[in-house]
Design a protein around this nucleic acid. Structure first.
Length: 776
DNA sequence: CAGTGAGCGAGCTTCCGCTTGACTT
């Protein structure tokens, strides 16, 4: 048994460190936190100064047993959890749970996994910082109080199983508010004018010079008047201005920037990025992927330096140390970088290779020279008016880091006409120019963009909300609770006007473009909006975007010993709990009800609201004489906030009765899987893009019913007289057994035709094993 | 796996942050 036991948080880290330390040291890991607040009974004794009730997490029992054994056998235990609030708490919990003797326990920290850093840490042990631990306890207790007191209010006032929390509720708020900005956005249009000038070249060649007017016109009339002037105008170069500029590389990756760039450049989702990065980390290819520090170790910078010189030469080198800007960063690790920077690529899956390449390039570029550019602006005078056409060109004088890596932006300028980057043809001041095309195009102002997973992470990080380890889970949680959906939505056609001056003639055309197409964007659901409005009404403090930042200031006071943690929680709890009581008492049940208007046919009121099974439209009201209102579910793509009276009235036209077939009613309606015909308690889907549920007739419905019967007959392999509920059928994935509305897989290699009843019953009994649920 | 929308009541849901597998599909 080893003399020394070192405990870190992650097993991959343990492996690396063990190599540096040699055989006197056994390095093992705690796998993060080992203890947490009890989940039943709140886990906090409110009456007793907020005393936390900690228990060893069920999935950590085994690890704790093992750690106890190893700690007992060691002469010295070195606790090397991360040097931040959570890491310090882990160290403290380890000391408590493993009952470590202070005389043989040492707390050490390092910010980078290099041999030097670790040896230095071993030489400089320190006691556990109790103040920092207390700051973590305050953070933990506050989150539990908020989550476990507000969520039950939602169960009562909105819907069971919902949740609220310091982080998730604000994340949903951002998405809801953005959606409302988009709903309320009024698109304005104006006219943007561009021209193509012809510049004669040396040997009779003509090159084009694309330029844009320095003014936009509000109306079609103004644009037309301008083009009229251009008809008779002369054009000449008024001015040529050259301006040097430079670009600087972006800082090395941290969790949030890696997620953003992997989303923009590789199309990865946030959780996908983390899963791939985890594999690279475990294979020893990159440093730790959950970090908020842009810091690179001296060793890393040196390796980058020789690599850059070898690949590109001295003039491309400029080593830099970046400063973290994010609010509340705790900087326990290095930036995300290749472990061995001289390795340009790695083995592994295609995704691993691509993510590694991205990380490698970003790291290398961060230590390279600025790019030097020159921007040229040419102004073109119009003889009969004061407006100017302008052409801009940009040339790269020295590429610097751009040779390796260029950071992407979220929104490529959709209005850009692409003349920004080009080299301009040689022209001189006062030179006369001819034009062969001037176009005034109607352009619309852009709605604010919806959030992607990655841009939401960016926003949260800017506000100091959430941590590198939680960005991906937050996005999953708000979707699991049904507050947010990530989806694609098709755009709509929009007409725009274009005026063209060519060959001295002005023509006017109406063109069509598609606008508002969305891909993998975050949309709030109706429930998300209703919950959000409820929380803002009754818990405005928690829902404040700055709530986290405010409590972080208080946690910092605790961390430097300026304040007792339970005093801080006490200050928070009193008014907060009052809020909870008040909300329970005075709030109405939140249903998101909207009165859309009156049905002209029946003169009954039309409402939309959230019902037991989701959003619905209601025609009429519950009245004394027992008349029941009509209900209809909203269809996918319809929302409480935006549905119109006309759209709602459409919903009541279904289900439609078509008539009778074989003495049974035939009806048509729209269900979760689209329009269907119902007959004899059987369902038949209408054919997509062929049948319309509002107009389809009885003959066509019978045709579909018969077609379905024919298909079912073909699928039937075998039945047994003794057990009519049991059938052997041919399905999409081969033969299977259907019994009492449940399906059972037939083991591979069995001939379905030869199965007897007893065989089938055996398959059913042995059938789907009870799922090992994750619920306790 | 498609229809529902009244009401009661038992028993359950829920937070954020730190870490990996162990489960199916």
């Amino acid at each position: 048994m080893s003399e020394n036991l070192v405990i870190v948080e992650s097993p991959a880290k343990a492996k690396t460190i063990e190599r540096f330390l040699g055989s006197d040291y056994l390095v093992t890991s705690s796998m993060g936190h080992i203890r947490d607040l009890e989940k039943k009974d709140f886990g906090i004794d409110i009456e007793n100064n907020f005393q936390p009730k900690y228990i060893v997490s069920p999935d950590k029992k085994k690890i704790v047993t093992e750690l106890k054994k190893q700690a007992k056998a060691a002469r010295t235990v070195w606790i090397a959890s991360d040097e931040d609030r959570e890491g310090e708490a882990i160290a403290w919990h380890l000391q408590q749970v493993l009952k470590l003797d202070p005389a043989k326990t040492k707390r050490i920290v390092f910010h980078e996994i290099t041999k030097d850093a670790i040896l230095k840490a071993i030489e400089n042990p320190r006691p556990i910082n109790v103040n920092l631990v207390n700051a973590q306890q305050a953070r933990r207790v506050l989150d539990r109080i908020v989550g476990f007191e507000v969520s039950p209010v939602l169960w009562k006032k909105v819907k069971p199983s919902l949740s609220a929390g310091r982080v998730q509720s604000v994340a949903v708020r951002l998405i809801v508010e953005r959606e409302r900005e988009i709903i309320n956005f009024n698109s304005q249009s104006n006219y943007r004018v561009s021209a193509i000038f012809l510049v004669p070249g040396e040997n009779g060649n003509v090159t084009e010079l694309k330029a844009e007017l320095n003014k936009r016109f509000e109306t079609k009339g103004e644009a037309q008047a301008f083009l009229e002037k251009c008809r008779t105008a002369e054009f000449s170069i008024a001015d040529i201005v050259k301006k040097p500029s430079k670009r600087t590389p972006a800082a090395p990756f941290i969790t949030s920037t890696l997620q953003q760039e992997a989303s923009r450049k590789l199309g990865f989702s946030v959780s996908q990025t983390m899963a791939v990065a985890q594999r690279l980390y475990e294979a020893g290819k990159i440093t730790y992927m959950r970090t908020d520090s842009v810091n690179l170790s001296g060793l890393a910078i040196n390796t980058a330096k020789s690599k850059i010189i070898a690949l590109h030469g001295e003039e491309y080198l400029k080593t830099r140390q970046y400063k973290t800007k994010a609010k509340g960063a705790q900087e326990a690790h290095e930036a995300i970088r290749p472990t061995y920077i001289d390795q340009e690529e790695v083995d592994g899956s295609a995704q691993e290779k691509r993510l590694y390449e991205l990380i490698w390039k970003r790291t290398i570029a961060s230590q390279m020279s600025d790019a030097k550019l020159e921007r040229t602006t040419v102004s073109i005078k119009i003889s009969n008016t004061t407006e100017l056409f302008q052409a801009t060109g940009e040339i790269i004088k020295f590429d610097g880091f751009l040779r390796v890596y260029m950071e992407s932006t979220d929104h490529e300028d959709e209005n850009s006409n692409g003349n920004g980057k080009a080299l301009l043809p040689p022209v001189e001041v006062n030179q006369q120019l001819r034009t062969n095309l001037i176009e005034a195009t109607e352009r619309f102002t852009q709605k604010p963009p919806r959030y992607t997973e990655a841009s939401l992470v960016k926003k949260l990080e800017e506000q100091g909300i959430g941590r590198p380890s939680t960005y991906a889970p937050i996005i999953t949680t708000v979707q699991n609770r049904g507050y947010v959906v990530k989806e694609d939505r098709p755009g709509v056609d929009r007409d725009f006007t274009q005026l063209t001056l060519t060959d001295n003639e002005i023509s006017v055309k109406t063109k069509t473009e598609v606008t508002g197409t969305e891909k993998s964007k975050l949309f709030p659901t109706d429930v998300g909006m209703v919950v959000n409005d409820f929380l803002i009404k009754y818990f405005d403090k928690i829902m404040d975007l700055n709530f986290t930042a405010k409590v972080e200031v208080e946690f910092d006071e605790i961390a430097i010993g300026g304040r007792a943690w339970n005093e801080m929680i006490g200050q928070f709890y009193k008014p907060f709990h009052q809020n909870v009581e008040n909300a329970l008492e005075v709030s109405e049940r939140a249903k998101g009800e909207r009165h859309l208007g009156t049905d002209p046919a029946t003169e009954l009121p039309v409402y939309v609201k959230i019902g037991r099974y989701g959003p619905l439209a209601q025609l009429g009201e519950v009245t004394e004489d027992g008349e029941k209102p009509k209900f209809a579910s909203l269809r996918s793509g319809q929302h409480l906030e935006t549905i119109t009276l006309e759209e709602a009235l459409e919903l009541f036209k279904l289900p439609r009765e078509l008539g009778e077939y074989e003495n049974k009613k035939v009806t048509v309606a729209i269900g979760r899987f689209g329009p269907y015909v119902r007959h004899d308690s059987k369902f038949v889907s209408l054919e997509k893009n062929v049948d319309d549920p509002y107009t389809v007739g009885l003959d066509r419905a019978i045709e579909l019913i018969e077609a379905k019967r024919e298909k079912d007959r073909k699928a039937l392999i075998k039945t047994f007289d003794q057990e009519p509920e049991l059938r052997i059928l041919e399905g999409r994935w081969g033969p299977y057994i259907s019994y009492k509305k449940k399906n059972y897989k037939i083991p591979k290699g069995t001939e379905a035709e030869k199965l007897e009843l007893a065989d089938c019953m055996k398959i059913i009994e042995e059938g789907p094993k009870p799922k090992k649920g994750r619920k306790k």
